[in-house]
């Protein structure tokens, strides 16, 4: 469906390497996530795939069409939701939707079944101007507009950035239902916790892909056992952990600190707890945990 082969993109006459030899494939009907922080190259990749930018190197195709030569055809077949809210703020919800439907040579009625579930949530506000909607509703409207011509491939560039947790959850539920209708979805996000909601993900940093697989496989490939530890004084604990010889890496992670050991020994946990107690830590708690995608990302970044 979507393939990239050694795709590169530079800006400022080569001074900035935004995308560096990226290759991956997205299968038909897959929900594929591009996970990485701002500036990792996600938007550039999306813009090349949606024919808005020409790659400096490599080849890419969407639905078997080359992104450079087949741009006219691709534009008919894909849906795209850019990172910034890209609808007309001074048009109403209804006017925006009708406009985009006509733009793609279709009508709202024709594809209403596809957007119905999402649209009913914003329908009570259909005469309101888009600029006056809340973040979550804007995003739903933008998704409706991107879907209105029944695209076969949907590109969503950071659809959940700046959106609160509740709206984010709703949004991912909608994506799952769209996927069930057979639409191939490429989504990018800086939120690592959203990675597990995708079927396959690519972790990207500095224009390079660090890992591509299913979230489960990426977690499984975490090289060493991961432990979580907490005490009554978390900031001191982190400093002390960094000073411990047997600890390979340690970093804050929510209410715990996560750490790995240099060597995989059975007595690791107990000896560390003893050492920490000697340093005056109380209420110590330690357990082995399953890594999250964020743990994997941190681990991959340290290479």
């Amino acid at each position: 469906m979507v393939t990239l082969q050694n795709i590169s993109k530079t800006y400022n006459k080569g001074a900035i390497k935004a995308v560096d030899q990226v290759s991956f494939k997205v299968k038909k009907g897959e929900l594929f996530g591009l996970i990485g922080p701002d500036g990792a190259g996600k938007t550039s990749i999306f813009r090349m795939l949606t024919t808005l930018l020409i790659p400096d190197g490599g080849v890419a195709s969407v639905n078997g069409l080359d992104v450079v030569t087949g741009y006219k055809e691709i534009r008919k077949q894909v849906g795209y939701m850019p990172g910034k809210f890209s609808l007309y703020q001074d048009l109403t919800v209804e006017e925006n939707l009708n406009f985009f439907a006509t733009l793609f040579n279709t009508t709202v009625q024709e594809n209403y079944d596809l957007i119905k579930e999402i649209y009913v949530q914003i329908e009570p506000f259909k005469t309101r101007r888009a600029g006056k909607l809340s973040g979550g509703m804007k995003q739903k409207l933008a998704l409706c507009c991107a879907l209105i011509h029944r695209p076969t491939v949907l590109f969503l560039d950071e659809p959940t950035t700046g959106v609160d947790t509740v709206s984010r959850k709703e949004f991912w539920d909608m994506l799952k239902r769209l996927k069930d209708q057979g639409i191939t979805i490429l989504v990018s996000t800086p939120y690592m916790d959203e990675a597990t909601l995708c079927e396959r993900i690519a972790l990207i940093q500095g224009g390079k892909i660090m890992s591509i697989d299913t979230p489960e496989a990426i977690i499984k490939s975490y090289p060493s056992p991961l432990f979580a530890v907490k005490s009554s004084k978390m900031s001191v604990l982190l400093e002390d952990l960094r000073k411990q010889d047997q600890v390979k890496s340690s970093f804050a992670f929510g209410e715990f600190h996560h750490l790995t050991f240099k060597e995989n020994l059975p007595e690791n946990q107990q000896s560390l707890l003893n050492d920490l107690e000697k340093l005056g830590h109380t209420c110590l708690e330690m357990k082995e945990i399953t890594p999250t995608i964020e743990d994997c990302f941190i681990q991959l970044m340290s290479h």
């Binding site: 808005l52 006219k72 890209s86 793609f104």
Partner: peptide, 13 residues
Amino acid sequence: ENGTMEILLVSPF
């Protein structure tokens, strides 16, 4: 500036 140009360009229009 609004980013709507991106969508317009990606449409078959």
